[in-house]
């Protein structure tokens, strides 16, 4: 094909098979030889920690990741991945971006560092899957857990010891004793990538309803692509966001009820309320760091306020 792109996702091969590959294959098929995107999985060409830099340099043309995992040097980085209690459902994410102005903030922030923000989409909620059961906040103390950087910063106050490892090494690390659990995904991902085979318990309380992730491209590479292919790329990436909406929504419910590998546990609601309370403190802490961050936190507050007032089915309490 005359135009060839390398896209590296932060997801490993087993998960990428669902969350990325179908959209890329569709794009390549419709582009019919005018352009081809080659897909690479987590750490395949460059380690995730160098992903942003590699895209800026043009070693990689496009990236699928949350801002947090690839450590974008932007003001919005902490909000990618799982910002504690920012959303309850996966539909919250596109609403926040398209109706509440996050899209514009993200585009501006990334333009400053020479990167094109193509679109944002939601993934799964963030739950713990552990080797030992978690039934109270006390059970979290001293657990070495693989989680997102910002989530880790938040969870550390409850005694969790956040550990960073390459994504592909998690299953092995759980088996070799490097990790006690993960706070990284919903139950669908636990089953899909094999983590359910090496953990025993799934905590139904979650610290976020949906992961925020994006497609990005090197700005120069993006400019070189003809308009109709840009439009096609946008459509296919939207399709990828849509695929995840139903794949996770259905998968989460089904595997909780019918999944044979993980036993469900819960922390009582009143105890969990302290975690939600701490999240609000955490929001204020982040908002104090800069004007842009304050703006984003303001939007989260406004949105959650509207949802709470709207009542059922948006919020039940």
């Amino acid at each position: 094909a005359p135009i060839k792109w390398r896209l590296q996702t932060y997801a490993g091969a087993a998960l990428g098979e669902h969350v990325t590959k179908p959209a890329i294959e569709k794009f390549n098929k419709i582009a019919a030889g005018q352009m081809e995107i080659e897909l690479y999985f987590a750490d395949q060409l460059v380690p995730t920690s160098e992903l942003f830099r590699a895209m800026q340099n043009g070693t990689i043309d496009a990236v699928q990741s949350d801002d947090d995992s690839m450590q974008s040097p932007t003001e919005v980085t902490v909000f990618g991945g799982y910002f504690p209690f920012a959303s309850r459902y996966s539909l919250d994410v596109p609403v926040l971006f398209n109706q509440y102005g996050l899209k514009q903030i993200w585009e501006e922030e990334y333009a400053k560092v020479g990167v094109k923000h193509i679109s944002a989409g939601a993934w799964d909620p963030c739950h713990f899957a552990t080797k030992d059961p978690v039934r109270s906040l006390k059970d979290l103390e001293g657990k070495r857990v693989f989680t997102f950087p910002t989530a880790g910063r938040f969870l550390a106050q409850f005694g969790v010891v956040p550990v960073q490892l390459p994504w592909e090494d998690i299953q092995v690390a759980l088996q070799t004793g490097e990790l006690d659990g993960i706070a990284w995904s919903g139950i669908t991902e636990d089953y899909t990538v094999g983590w359910a085979d090496v953990t025993k318990y799934f905590l139904t309380n979650n610290i976020s309803g949906a992961w925020i992730g994006h497609f990005f491209a090197n700005q120069d590479r993006w400019n070189e692509v003809p308009d109709h292919l840009k439009a096609l790329m946008e459509v296919c990436f939207e399709q990828s966001h849509y695929y995840r909406q139903w794949w996770y929504w259905g998968g989460e419910a089904d595997l909780r009820v019918n999944g044979p590998k993980l036993e469900l546990t819960s922390i009582p609601d009143d105890e969990w309320a302290t975690v939600e309370g701490k999240a609000r403190d955490f929001w204020d802490e982040i908002a104090a760091e800069s004007e842009t961050k304050a703006k984003v936190v303001e939007i989260f507050k406004k949105y959650n306020d509207v949802m709470a007032k709207a009542g059922r089915p948006y919020r039940y309490s």
Partner: peptide, 19 residues
């Protein structure tokens, strides 16, 4: 013209992450 020269260095980071 698309970068590529940084792959060798990023490999050292990849190796560092290989616990």
């Amino acid at each position: 013209d698309r970068g590529g020269y940084d792959i060798a260095f990023t490999t050292s980071i990849k190796l560092m992450n290989w616990y």
